[in-house]
């Protein structure tokens, strides 16, 4: 998995790992993230970090729906330096979404993932990540999830 440093267009190795609630508290003290992550501790929370510097640049929480063989992406947040036209690194959200797809395959869910987007952002997830309309949700199934993994992981 790699991110792109926007300024130099250099590829940087990155990793996703699950984080413990205590570690999450420390991350939030850094003020790089603004969502209410402390309310996500009952779900699976992952960090995306740059391998060399260990800088944490993204967080994601997942809810497992084992009876439905589905993973729901509850939240993704890029660190504050990585939002907008002046962001340092590209591919953060895409890498986290692809990681969710991989986790879905790993658990025998055939790559099925979903998320409930804000209305204004809905079309972007469809256009950028190939997601499909699913009522109030958008989702990615086997073929699209495999493509996202090939692109980002």
């Amino acid at each position: 998995m790699h991110l792109i440093q926007v300024k130099s267009q250099e590829k940087l190795g990155a990793l996703v790992e699950k984080i413990a609630p205590m570690e999450l508290k420390q991350i939030l003290k850094s003020k790089q993230f603004k969502f209410k992550w402390n309310t996500e501790s009952k779900y699976e929370v992952y960090k995306l970090y740059i391998t060399e510097s260990e800088e944490i640049v993204g967080l994601m929480s997942l809810q497992d729906w084992p009876k439905e063989l589905r993973l729901e992406i509850r939240l993704i947040e890029s660190s504050k330096d990585n939002v907008g036209s002046h962001k340092k690194y590209d591919r953060i959200a895409g890498s986290l979404i692809a990681f969710a797809c991989g986790t879905s395959f790993e658990r025998g869910y055939n790559g099925f993932i979903s998320l409930v987007p804000k209305t204004a952002l809905r079309s972007y997830y469809i256009n950028e990540y190939g997601m499909e309309e699913g009522g109030k949700s958008v989702y990615s199934d086997t073929l699209n999830s495999a493509e996202l993994m090939d692109k980002y992981l």
């Binding site: 969502f35 939240l75 947040e77 890029s78 952002l121 699913g134 949700s137």
Partner: peptide, 27 residues
């Protein structure tokens, strides 16, 4: 915003239940 985040959905509990039912049908 969408390039960087998947923000909280902002639905009420009832709306989220409806969303869950819809996606379960698709699944």
């Amino acid at each position: 915003l969408a390039q960087a985040h998947v923000p909280p959905h902002g639905l009420t509990e009832k709306q989220k239940e409806e969303a869950d039912k819809q996606i379960w049908e698709i699944r």
